[in-house]
Design a protein around this nucleic acid. Sequence first.
DNA 1: ACCTGAACACCGTTCAAGT
DNA 2: ACCTGAACACCGTTCAAGT
Lengths: 227, 227
Amino acid sequence: MVGTTESGPPGTSAWWAAHAERLERRRPRVDGLTIERIVDEALALVDGEGLDALTVRGLAARFDTSSATLYRHVASRDELLVLLVEQVLGEIRLPDPSLAGRTKVLELSTEFRRVLLAHPNVVDALRAAPLNGPNAVRCADAGLANLLDAGYPPDLAIPAYLAMIDYVLGSVFFRSAGGDPQPFPPAPEGAPTLEANWSEVAESESEKVFAFGLEMFLTGLDRLTGR
Amino acid sequence: MVGTTESGPPGTSAWWAAHAERLERRRPRVDGLTIERIVDEALALVDGEGLDALTVRGLAARFDTSSATLYRHVASRDELLVLLVEQVLGEIRLPDPSLAGRTKVLELSTEFRRVLLAHPNVVDALRAAPLNGPNAVRCADAGLANLLDAGYPPDLAIPAYLAMIDYVLGSVFFRSAGGDPQPFPPAPEGAPTLEANWSEVAESESEKVFAFGLEMFLTGLDRLTGR
DNA sequence: ACCTGAACACCGTTCAAGT
DNA sequence: ACCTGAACACCGTTCAAGT
């Protein structure tokens, strides 16, 4: 991308600041492309065909143009991933502030998971770069605030916060980018315990498993804090 | 790979059966290559340079040969990923059977996580194909057996089992393939709650966070089962 | 100043031609 | 029968040459 001022790698705070400036300074282009249109199209492409299908060439083709032309709007494929993630995180609706803390904790976790499952092919991009976009920061702050609001002391709320983020990500892992429909659990041949419980294991709904795990976790927290 | 009998996609039970047969039928090759040597080298490559660096051409180069030659031993890059995953899962040591059930649950989860963190670049390959290899099946069966052995009834043990696998995977997500060193949490600019707790958040050890989450989860299970 | 065809250094995979 | 150079259809990214 010609004329880009140095701003560090995509996704860093410095890059986000420079990005905001670029958006303000921009003038109309003859090709009619904007970052917004490009990211929208990229998300449609990734949702439909997977993260690997997001190639600069392929995306350019959707606009009937060449990769070189796209590079006048986006500095790299990595930058595209950063913008894609921020766009998806923007779909997360924070719980009503007036709700009880524990309810907000449950709701935000479930909402985070819902949005990731709405865009499973984007999940891998979450770790491609730092998560310093406005939407990421907004959600990250709310997550910790909710736990504190629920009354858990900081020395429990903080590890609980970090553990819950891991849990949400793990709960979508096998259904995310490039994932086989059912990689796990394995066929139970040669696995006596799995075989004996196979119908219950195979029929488990991931939604219910997630809610169960979340509830167990919070119940443990409650017991530890004497509730 | 010439002469491969049809056996379904890599990672399926049918494929594993055919794979075992192939290993038995094989005769020495003039190039001196074996699947074992290829997988060992692939793992070294992935551990050192990431999953994306595992290219058929690049791997062939490590044996001073061409990609076409490698394709006489391995049918596809996907097959390589399946074998890589199985190799890594083979490093998981199951807990001593004589230990208490709850202890075994904690130990196996921690061991699973340890092995994944020893090969963070392999983690993504876990969902590339079904997990029906002998090592995967062995570990999967032990995981459920341990929970039942701990005394949790099947209708709790099964969702607990599935939730715990998700949790382990989530706990390594941000440190796995292609992951930035520290993508999360974000820099706390504009995030008042994160900012107020920043030193505690930033200094959290992922090992401790993981153990905390696991303990909370099992404590919740204990309470639900009246313990 | 802005745009882009063509090139560079890569991919996974196949197969005809060699031994 | 076994092996592999060369090709096919792709990548991300750059830049000289055009307008």
